[in-house]
């Protein structure tokens, strides 16, 4: 059964108050106030001088469980939210593999699930390892992106992106954090740029909670559980208000959604769920046997939920 063997996170020391971004992002004072008071965003992580390679390498550098086990890593998957992020054929993923002694691994990027791509990568990694059936084999999943252009900095009236990164070791038969279910709903009818199409933005905002609720409830059901058996939701950090709405819709206490990173990291693309898992584990919020949800949504649009058992 697919399992998260280890999860590490990296948050750059740099923090930028959202007010400082207003000029470049064209945000009015009112929009900044809404982001801060309503959406719960305060500052975002920025690694001003670092490259994408630096960001990902720092996350893997925090993954102590990888040391001495590099030879067991058969696959390296980069879960990228932005479909295109570096000029062709620059390849930070393979650069990273060479530097880490992982050149023997099959490495590739999965994308197009936007900020839900991290969950997709875990599912794919588990399937590859299970099919191989090699005892002890591992996959390394990495996530994290640079805010290099406006579309990678801002979701209009919704969220501001941050530069955090995560690295996970996935196994096919681990004992901890076992994957019980994965549900994803694609909504290609939300194709388009929200900033250019106000009608699309309105429709997306209206249908977002119901679409995310649908995959959450389906994942819980697929895991053979009831929603009140879910001890924690490990969310994506799009904003706080959307989680409050969603929790009202599905009857889940919002204080069991770990939203503390929203205010201090911003929305770190496909890395959010892993960053928040690390925060939950470090705070002792996950006890043996706890069943929890990782939930993410992405523009384009994708809605995904995974149930794990800690």
């Amino acid at each position: 059964m697919t399992a998260l063997t280890a999860v590490a996170s990296y948050l750059p020391a740099g923090r930028v108050p959202i007010e400082e971004l207003a000029g470049r992002l064209g945000l009015s004072d009112r929009q900044v106030r809404v982001f801060r008071r309503f959406h719960g965003l305060s500052e975002v992580c920025r690694d001003h001088d670092g490259t994408l390679f630096d960001l990902l390498a720092a996350a893997v550098g925090e993954l102590d469980e990888l040391r001495g086990r590099e030879h067991l890593v058969k696959y390296v998957l980069y879960a990228r939210g932005m479909p295109v992020a570096v000029p062709y054929p620059a390849n930070p993923l393979h650069e990273l593999c060479r530097k880490l002694g992982l050149a023997h691994a099959v490495a590739f990027t999965v994308t197009h699930h936007a900020c839900a791509t991290g969950l997709l990568a875990v599912d794919i990694a588990g399937r590859l390892l299970a099919s191989d059936g090699v005892p002890g084999a591992l996959a390394l999943v990495i996530a994290g992106e640079k805010t290099f252009t406006r579309d990678a900095e801002l979701v209009p009236d919704t969220s501001i992106f941050g530069e955090g990164a995560a690295a996970c070791l996935v196994s096919a038969d681990g004992a901890s954090d076992r994957l019980l279910s994965y549900v994803t709903r694609l909504r290609g009818d939300f194709d388009g740029r929200l900033v250019e199409d106000p009608g699309l933005a309105v429709r997306f905002a209206k249908e977002y909670p119901g679409s995310l609720a649908e995959v959450i409830l389906a994942a819980v059901q697929r895991a053979g559980l009831a929603l009140d058996e879910i001890s924690l939701i490990v969310p994506h950090n799009v904003n706080a208000v959307s989680w409050r709405r969603l929790c009202r819709m599905i009857g889940y206490p919002v204080d069991r959604v770990l939203l503390d990173n929203v205010a201090v990291t911003g929305h770190c693309f496909a890395a959010d769920a892993f960053l928040n898992y690390r925060l939950a584990a470090d705070r002792g919020l996950l006890n043996p046997g706890d069943r929890y949800l990782m939930v993410a949504a992405g523009l384009g649009a994708t809605f995904s939920a995974m149930v794990f058992e800690h």
């Binding site: 479909p83 295109v84 062709y88 197009h112 694609l186 909504r187 992405g298 384009g300 994708t302």
Partner: peptide, 17 residues
Amino acid sequence: AMHDLRLGRATSVYLSN
């Protein structure tokens, strides 16, 4: 391998539709 011109589009999700 080489990206296309719709740089921000989740093309496969669009194609799913």
